[in-house]
């Protein structure tokens, strides 16, 4: 990758925000390895995680040294959305997180790919990958929501619990030349339609303003994120420069 001039701070900030989203969600999905409900899901979640890790590597390399950024930053220096750092919970929680995030990421990359900005080459590539991620999340949402009483109740609980983290996706990000309100309209439409078909009630709680979550882009994170980072970073920090 060609390095970006350090003076372009808006581009660096944007690369960090989008790169951290991909990196953190990739790590969370990786936590399912060995724990997924069936082997096929084990492979699916790991493959989605791998796609996200590939995107993270390109984005973080545009912002600096990818390893230093991933393994040596403190919690407050991460710029990811609070949504992606939320613990996996049960399978329905993971699917709800995937549904919310993949719908957003697919729309965002679609917009960036259509433009001629510095993120266009990556977005043009990644938008095709996120189409599969979104499809995976939507199919599971339908299956769980419109499934047994138990799976329906769990899917409903999950979309309700994560709803308060979804407003943050549509706050403007410096260096990302996309209209957030346009994204939000399209996102709401898509997600509501899937939930409706899944016989799940679209949550009506607040998504923005007081009492809602969402300051990850400013470096404020939720309680579980510190533990996730500790696990992600400890090997690199304990054995600096280790290779295999």
């Amino acid at each position: 990758m060609t390095t970006t001039p350090a003076k372009d701070t808006a581009h660096t900030a944007a690369a960090l925000a989008l790169g951290d989203d991909a990196l953190v969600l990739s790590h969370r999905l990786g936590e399912w390895a060995g724990h997924a409900p069936v082997l096929e899901e084990e492979l699916a979640l790991a493959n989605i995680a791998l796609d996200l890790l590939g995107q993270a590597r390109v984005l973080l390399s545009a912002a600096g040294d990818e390893d230093e950024l991933a393994y040596l930053r403190e919690e407050r220096a991460f710029r990811n959305l609070q949504l992606v750092e939320q613990p996996n919970g049960d399978f329905a929680h993971t699917i709800a997180r995937q549904l919310y995030f993949s719908a957003y990421q697919h729309l965002l990359y679609g917009e960036l790919a259509a433009g001629d900005g510095p993120f266009a080459p990556l977005a043009g590539k990644a938008v095709k990958e996120t189409a599969y991620h979104r499809d995976h999340a939507e199919q599971w949402t339908l299956r769980l929501g419109d499934g047994t009483d138990e799976s329906h109740a769990r899917m409903q609980r999950a979309v309700d619990a994560l709803w308060r983290y979804t407003g943050e996706m549509f706050q403007p990000v410096e260096g990302v030349d996309v209209d957030p309100s346009g994204l939000e309209t399209a996102w709401l439409e898509r997600v509501s339609e899937v939930l409706r078909r899944a016989t799940v009630t679209v949550p009506d709680g607040p998504r923005t303003g007081a009492w809602t979550a969402g300051a990850g882009r400013q470096g404020l994170h939720t309680e579980s994120f510190g533990r996730m980072l500790a696990e992600m970073q400890h090997l690199h920090r304990s054995h600096p420069g280790a290779t295999w």
Partner: peptide
Amino acid sequence: LLSRFSSTACKAL
């Protein structure tokens, strides 16, 4: 279709 993701990201099962 059994799974959208198979042994690698580029394949479905």
